[in-house]
Computed example of a mutant assay.
Amino acid sequence: MRAPIGHFDHAVPAPDCLDELTRPVADAVRGWRGATPAEQIVHVDTNPEWADTATFVEHYGKELLDRSANCVVVAGKRGGETTLAACVVLSATRVDVNGVVRRQLGSRKASFAPMDTATGETGMEYGGITPVGLPADWPVLVDAAVVALPYVLVGSGRRRGKLLVPGAAFAELPNAVVLEGLGLA
């Protein structure tokens, strides 16, 4: 199969390579219920040594710079309670943690979750966290610019490999909330 974006040697529909994914991601693909068919979610094999954005786009296609998203785990705190959530924004932007995220979670304070919390709670590797397969009760905050793209490159749950996901599919994730201005330039 040819990847819908980028220049990858190995691209496979995610349902056909579940053993390449972490358990939570494989379970999410297996149980996919969105209007976008799971077969349109594509796994591409990538070299983890080329994970740095500049090196990555040099090897896999410069057009990926504007079609890549980051998924970060945030912690919102209010009155001794902590709410974990995921934020998905284009790679060229940063998450508006103290504005949009804090207000959306109804938190007094919001910050990026520590790495051990992010990896421990998601079952995914640091640098490969993806919104596909997150804990079912987590809010998934998605910038509207991500949803507007035909395909978006995002983590696969592992440092090796990425997912190419139709932008509209991010709005179909459990507990997804599409927000304008989540990603700041």
Rank of each mutant, 00 (worst) to 15 (best):
4 P>V: 01
5 I>C: 02
5 I>Q: 02
6 G>V: 06
8 F>N: 01
12 V>L: 14
12 V>K: 10
15 P>E: 08
15 P>Q: 10
16 D>N: 13
16 D>H: 13
19 D>R: 09
22 T>A: 15
24 P>M: 02
24 P>K: 01
25 V>D: 09
26 A>E: 13
26 A>Q: 12
26 A>H: 13
26 A>V: 05
27 D>N: 14
27 D>E: 15
27 D>C: 05
28 A>I: 00
28 A>G: 03
31 G>P: 00
31 G>E: 14
35 A>Q: 12
39 E>P: 00
39 E>F: 00
41 I>E: 04
42 V>G: 01
43 H>V: 04
43 H>C: 06
46 T>I: 04
47 N>M: 04
52 D>N: 14
54 A>W: 09
57 V>S: 05
58 E>Q: 14
60 Y>K: 10
61 G>D: 02
61 G>F: 04
62 K>D: 04
65 L>A: 13
66 D>Q: 13
71 C>R: 07
73 V>I: 15
74 V>L: 14
76 G>Q: 07
77 K>W: 00
79 G>Q: 12
81 E>C: 04
82 T>V: 15
83 T>H: 09
84 L>S: 10
84 L>G: 13
86 A>E: 06
87 C>R: 10
88 V>H: 08
88 V>D: 04
90 L>E: 08
91 S>D: 08
92 A>R: 08
95 V>Q: 11
97 V>K: 11
97 V>N: 09
101 V>N: 12
101 V>I: 12
102 R>W: 06
103 R>K: 15
103 R>Q: 11
103 R>P: 08
104 Q>R: 12
104 Q>E: 14
105 L>F: 12
106 G>H: 10
109 K>L: 11
110 A>D: 07
113 A>I: 04
113 A>N: 11
113 A>G: 08
114 P>R: 10
115 M>K: 12
115 M>V: 15
116 D>I: 02
116 D>Y: 07
122 T>W: 15
123 G>L: 06
124 M>D: 07
125 E>P: 08
125 E>R: 11
126 Y>W: 15
127 G>P: 02
127 G>A: 07
127 G>F: 07
129 I>V: 14
131 P>G: 06
132 V>W: 00
133 G>M: 05
134 L>N: 04
134 L>C: 03
136 A>P: 00
137 D>K: 03
138 W>R: 13
139 P>T: 00
139 P>I: 03
140 V>H: 09
140 V>E: 10
141 L>D: 11
141 L>N: 14
141 L>F: 10
142 V>E: 11
143 D>E: 12
146 V>K: 10
147 V>K: 02
153 L>V: 05
154 V>F: 04
159 R>L: 05
159 R>K: 09
159 R>A: 02
160 R>N: 03
161 G>A: 05
162 K>I: 02
162 K>V: 02
162 K>R: 15
162 K>F: 04
164 L>I: 12
164 L>K: 03
164 L>C: 06
165 V>T: 05
166 P>M: 08
168 A>S: 13
168 A>I: 08
169 A>S: 11
171 A>I: 11
172 E>R: 05
172 E>G: 03
173 L>G: 10
173 L>S: 11
174 P>V: 01
174 P>H: 00
175 N>A: 11
176 A>T: 06
177 V>C: 05
182 L>G: 01
185 A>P: 15
